[in-house]
Simulated assay, not measured.
Amino acid sequence: MKAHWWSCVLGLLCMPAEVILSTWTVSQEPMSISQVRVNSSTKITCSTSLSETMGVYLHRGFHGKKDVVFLALDKGQVTQDTIAKNFEGRIHIAKEQQITEGHGFTWELSLLGLEDTDWYYCSWVYFNSVKGNQETRSSTGTIIIVRERDPQEQCRIHTENLIFMSVTAFTAILILFIGAVIVRSKRFKKKFRPAREVRPSRPNRPQHVCPHQTVQHCPYLITSANPLDFRGIL
Score class of each variant (00 low, 15 high):
Leu58Gly: 11
Val26Gly: 11
Thr171Met: 13
Gly232Trp: 04
Asn226Gly: 03
Trp6Cys: 03
Glu96Cys: 01
Tyr57Leu: 03
Met165Tyr: 00
Phe87His: 06
Arg202Phe: 06
Gly76Trp: 00
Ala225Ile: 02
Asp67Thr: 02
Met1Val: 11
Pro200Arg: 11
Gln35Tyr: 04
Glu197Leu: 05
Phe127Glu: 09
Ser41Glu: 14
Pro200Gln: 14
His103Thr: 05
Gly11Leu: 14
Val146Pro: 01
His63Tyr: 09
Leu221Phe: 14
Trp107Gly: 02
Gly64Lys: 01
Asn86Ile: 01
Trp124Ala: 04
Ser32Lys: 14
Val146Glu: 11
Asp229Phe: 04
Val209Met: 15
Asn86Gln: 14
Ser27Pro: 01
Gly89Ser: 05
Lys131Ala: 12
Leu162Met: 12
Ile157Asn: 06
Ser185Thr: 11
Glu29Lys: 15
Glu88Phe: 07
Ile173Glu: 07
Gln28Ile: 12
Phe87Thr: 01
His158Glu: 15
Ala225Cys: 05
Thr53Glu: 13
Met54Ile: 08
Asn161Ile: 03
Val167Phe: 12
Arg137His: 04
Thr100Ala: 13
Asn86Cys: 11
Val125Ala: 08
Thr45Tyr: 11
Ile93Thr: 07
Arg149Gly: 01
Ile20Ala: 15
Arg193Thr: 12
Leu58Lys: 05
Gly61Thr: 13
Ala17Ser: 13
Ile83Lys: 04
Pro200Trp: 00
Tyr57Asp: 10
Leu174Phe: 05
Lys191Gly: 08
Ile222Tyr: 10
Trp124Glu: 07
Phe62Ala: 00
Val19Thr: 10
Ser40Phe: 06
Asp118Tyr: 05
Gln35Ser: 13
Asn128Ile: 02
Gln80Lys: 09
Thr136His: 10
Glu153Lys: 15
Ile143Thr: 09
Met165Asn: 09
Pro16Leu: 06
Gln77Pro: 01
Pro203Ile: 15
Gln207Asp: 08
Trp5Ser: 05
Arg60Val: 02
Asp229Tyr: 03
His158Trp: 14
Pro206Thr: 08
Thr140Lys: 14
Pro227Cys: 10
Lys43His: 13
